[in-house]
Design a binder for these strands. Structure first.
Length: 258
DNA sequence: TAGGCCATCTGGTCCT
DNA sequence: AGGACCAGATGGCCTA
């Protein structure tokens, strides 16, 4: 079997994946050489204006191909499939980058399935947070007319006066309230250590909060809001827990002071 | 050593 | 016909 033709490729498609467009970045030596040969053949065929598989100008059906030509075809298909999968992995890496999850050399990257599930939950969480904030804005400004009068700042509340009291992103506040802990307690990581994974343990499904079978979770979108968990002894990897711009914190402080 | 995750190959199906 | 997409099979690597 020559199925190990591509096995020399490092399996770390993602961390080391070169974004470089050159084909060489994708393949190991053998594969790349083969790829070059193929593309060279393709170019030459293109210059002639004839199909590659056509022996003497007339295209052959698959059954008419010689063993060698069949092998060439196979390699070409394999190469395409490989490239497709690399593109897919690149997209997956792009998704990982924007997820609220700790990145870095010491942190094991999310698996594909974890990335997808976390992304889904993240989107759901953002949606619910948005709804929540809309509601809060409505409350603060007194009902339906409130949004229209938003152009004028509230006279009784200095914009930056209360911002310092709320260092967390409003999104994190709602997220943490959904999780069931106060932001401050989460920041101090006071939950039981028994549930904490090792700092460098892989992000398993349970880390992401998938206690129940995924099928069940899919039926219960609200439950998904608790998909992001914080653990003692670890700096909060949640990007939502970072200090926030005053605009959003001010907005949140308005609702808190109400 | 078992299990999880992954890359790759391969054949089938669908679309252009 | 060729290419994209998909799913199954296989084997390698890593971790508990």
């Amino acid at each position: 079997m020559d199925s190990d033709a591509g096995s020399t490729c490092s399996r770390s498609s993602s961390p080391d994946l070169v974004v470089d467009d050159s084909a060489g970045s994708f393949f190991s030596n053998k594969m790349f050489q083969r790829y070059c040969q193929e593309s060279r053949r393709d170019r030459e065929a293109g210059q002639d204006g004839t199909e590659r598989c056509s022996g003497g100008g007339k295209t052959k059906t698959r059954s008419e191909l010689s063993k060698e030509e069949m092998q060439d075809l196979r390699l070409k298909v394999n190469s395409r499939e490989r490239k497709r999968m690399h593109d897919l992995n690149q997209a997956m890496d792009g998704l990982r980058e924007v997820m609220p999850y700790a990145h870095g050399p010491s942190v094991r990257k999310l698996s594909k399935i974890s990335t997808l599930l976390l992304a889904r939950n993240y989107i759901l969480m953002l949606s619910s947070s948005l709804e929540e904030m809309k509601k809060l804005v409505g409350d603060v400004y007194g009902g339906s007319a409130a949004v229209q009068s938003r152009t004028a700042p509230h006279p009784t509340i200095p914009p930056a006066a209360t911002a310092a009291h709320l260092p967390l992103h409003p999104l994190a506040q709602s997220l943490h309230s959904l999780v069931g802990s106060t932001p401050s307690s989460l920041q101090h990581h006071s939950s039981s250590p028994s549930s904490a994974p090792a700092p460098h343990s892989p992000p398993s499904a349970s880390f992401l909060g998938f206690h129940a079978p995924v099928q069940g979770l899919l039926k219960d979108p609200l439950h998904l809001a608790s998909s992001y968990r914080h653990f003692p002894g670890m700096p909060c990897p949640c990007s939502l827990c970072q200090p926030l711009p005053t605009t959003t914190s001010t907005l949140h402080s308005l609702s808190m002071n109400k």
